[in-house]
């Protein structure tokens, strides 16, 4: 899929809010814990559209989101200003 996320698990507190908002059901609690002993979240399907909803809801800002560039001449390139949170 077009998207990818990276989770800073050492700062994740396992609140689970991202799990509920992911439209691709890509996230769930991991069996592993981080150095603080908190259950962290991990990607389970790898299917990610880069929608950034997980990052928007994360209270700790531990998620970074990447997305493929749209093809240059695509007539159906979506407007990105609505979802692009960071220039």
């Amino acid at each position: 899929m077009a998207g990818k996320i990276k989770i800073d698990v050492e700062r994740c507190k396992g609140c689970g809010l991202c799990i509920g908002v992911c439209p691709k059901k890509n996230l769930d609690f991991a069996k592993e814990t981080n150095k603080k002993g908190l259950s962290v979240v991990k990607q389970i399907t790898g299917e990610c559209s880069g929608c950034t909803l997980c990052a928007i809801i994360c209270p700790e800002a531990v998620i970074e989101v990447y997305r493929d560039e749209p093809p240059k001449n695509s007539k159906t390139t979506p407007k990105t200003d609505l979802v692009e949170e960071k220039r």
């Binding site: 050492e10 700062r11 609140c15 809010l17 990052a55 209270p59 998620i63 560039e69 979802v83 692009e84």
Partner: peptide, 22 residues
């Protein structure tokens, strides 16, 4: 791939003391 979401500079890179989900 381009970055479409990352932590903004004025938010410091650190672990907060807030409860999970606060």
């Amino acid at each position: 791939m381009k970055t479409v979401f990352s932590k903004t500079p004025t938010l410091k890179e650190c672990s907060t003391h807030y409860c999970p989900g606060c």
